[in-house]
Each structure stands twice: as C-alpha cells, then as structure tokens.
C-alpha cells in the first residue's frame, strides 16, 4: 500500500510538471499570436492569418491537457456540464471521468447510442445542405465568397457525418482529441503553399495586346 501511495504521489508530481509545461507552451503560443497581431500593420494577409490559425491551434492543443485535468479535479467552472450530466449520459461519454472504475469490464460490450430516427434526421440535413450547394452553383457571386460558403457547408456536413454516422460524438474525449486536432493542424499546414501559388499567377507572362493569329494557333496546338 505504501509503495502504491508513493507511486501515486510520483504520478501526481509528474502530472503537475506536465501541466505546467503545457500551460506555459499554450500561453507562449497565444502571446506570439497576439504579438503578431499587434506588430503587423495589415493583419488580413495570408501569412498573418496562417500564423494566427496555427498559433491558436497549437495553443488549444497544449491547453487541452491542463484544462481536462482541472475539469477532472472539479476546479474548472463549466456552465453547461452540470446540465448535461443528469440526462442519462454516462460520464464516460463526456470524457475522462470515471476512469478507474470500469477497467475490469470486458471490452466487447456493445455500446451504441443514437436511434434510427436521429440518423434519418441527420441524413435529411445532409441532403438539404447538398441541395443548397447545388443551388449556390447557379447564383452569380464572386468565386471567393462561393468558395467560403461551399467550404463552410462542407465542413458542417463532414462534422455531422463524423459526429453521428461515424459515432465519434459518442466516443471518449481522449479519442476525439487524438484524432481531430492534429489532422486539422496538418491540413492547415498545407496552406503554406498558397502564397507561392498566387505568386506564380503573377509571374505568368501577360499578353497585354491580343496575340498575333499564328502565335495563338501554336498555343492551341500545344494544348
């Protein structure tokens, strides 16, 4: 028993150190994002937005650990958690609670939440959002606005599919945190190529006057 107690206090110390490191990291990233926002004159450039998004995402990932620790210790004031708990949802669905208790249970227990009615409702929403996308295609608007709306709708649809059909909403929070944030960060990192893409559009030779007929012909043949 003594040994176990000392082991537990050792774990507690480790957890404290880890939480402190994560908090410092999160604050550093937030500070960097704020510093960047203050010092850059024109904030809304691709580079600035990219930097801010990445900094905020890293800060979020680093802050998740300490926040969850606080939540488990009951020191985090969460306005909606108390309402959510009594509605028959086991604490397991909400994340890290009640961990030590259920360890010895067999894994093969089938837990499947969500009714067919709920899934049909989600499917209807997906169809409606798709219909909106198709209608949008024929509305005259700038390509940037259209891209923003379409991507927004797509992300909503993807979130619906992941949360309900793929059942991630009903999984443990630790699985969600393992799968989702790093994927989002990796995809955001891919945006680093876009400044180069816009630059190469600017580098293209501009035909300022209508090209002679022969030149156009060879250009066609090249295609």
């Amino acid at each position: 028993m003594d040994h176990q107690a000392s082991q537990q206090s050792g774990m507690k110390k480790e957890a404290t150190v880890l939480n402190v490191i994560c908090t410092v990291g999160a604050i550093a990233f937030l500070a960097f994002a704020a510093f960047n926002a203050i010092t850059s004159g024109d904030f809304f450039t691709t580079d600035n937005l990219f930097l801010t998004v990445i900094c905020l995402l890293f800060a979020l990932v680093l802050a998740v650990g300490p926040l969850l620790y606080l939540k488990d210790a009951g020191k985090l004031p969460l306005p909606f958690m108390k309402k959510a708990l009594p509605e028959g949802s086991s604490p397991e669905q909400l994340g890290t609670g009640s961990v030590a208790i259920e360890h010895d249970e067999p894994v093969e227990e089938v837990h499947f939440s969500g009714t067919n009615k709920l899934f049909s409702f989600i499917w209807l929403w997906l169809l409606v959002l798709t219909a909106i996308e198709i209608i949008l295609a024929y509305k005259p608007m700038s390509i940037h606005l259209m891209l923003t709306i379409l991507l927004g709708l797509s992300i909503i649809k993807a979130a619906l599919i992941i949360a309900y059909f793929m059942h991630l909403k009903f999984e443990r929070l630790s699985l969600i945190l393992t799968v989702v944030p790093m994927l989002v960060i990796c995809i955001c990192l891919l945006f680093v190529f876009f400044p180069d893409s816009f630059r190469s559009l600017g580098l293209r030779y501009k035909f300022n006057e209508p090209p002679p007929v022969e030149v156009k012909k060879t250009a066609d043949e090249d295609q």
Binding site: Q7, Q8, M11, K12, E92, V99, A100, H103, S174, L175
Partner: peptide
C-alpha cells in the same frame, strides 16, 4: 470514489498498460 481521488488515479490507471485508454478495441 471522490473526484479528487479519481483525478489522481487517472494518469496512472489509464496509461500503465492492461487497459484500453481510448475505450475502443485496437
């Protein structure tokens, strides 16, 4: 088990092996 005790045992119990930390099969 009090919430405090649960928080303490959390890290040890979950990642010491012999359990499924994500509550899903491999």
């Amino acid at each position: 088990m009090s919430t405090e005790a649960r928080a303490e045992s959390f890290a040890a119990a979950d990642w010491d092996g012999g359990t499924l930390p994500y509550r899903v099969g491999h």
